[in-house]
Amino acid sequence: MIRHVVAWKLAAEDEEGRVAAAAAIQAALAPLPAIIPEIKTFSIGPNVAYADKNWDICLVADYDDLDGLETYQVHPEHLKAVDIVKPLVSARASVDFEL
Rank of each mutant, 00 (worst) to 15 (best):
L59K: 01
A93G: 14
F42K: 03
R3D: 14
D14N: 12
I25S: 00
R18H: 08
P46Y: 07
H78L: 06
K9M: 04
H78Y: 02
D14Y: 08
S90I: 02
L32I: 00
A24F: 02
A34H: 10
D67V: 10
A24G: 03
A21Y: 03
A34R: 13
I57R: 02
S94A: 15
P87M: 03
F42N: 02
M1F: 12
S94L: 15
L59H: 00
T41E: 12
V89H: 00
C58A: 15
A34K: 12
G68V: 02
Y72M: 02
Q73Y: 12
A51T: 12
F97G: 09
D67N: 11
F42P: 01
G45T: 08
Q73D: 12
D64L: 12
L10G: 01
W55S: 11
A93V: 14
H78I: 01
P31Q: 09
E13A: 11
V85I: 09
Q26P: 06
D83C: 09
H4K: 08
R92H: 08
A28G: 07
T41N: 13
N54I: 05
A93P: 05
C58Q: 10
V5Y: 09
D62H: 07
V82M: 04
A20Q: 07
Q26C: 13
R18K: 15
V6N: 03
G17E: 08
E98S: 14
G45Q: 09
A23E: 14
Y63S: 06
S43P: 07
K40M: 12
T41L: 11
L10V: 05
I84F: 00
A81F: 06
G68Y: 00
K40H: 13
Q73G: 11
E77N: 07
A34D: 15
A23I: 09
V60F: 08
D83V: 06
D56C: 04
M1D: 12
A93N: 13
A23D: 10
D64W: 11
F42C: 05
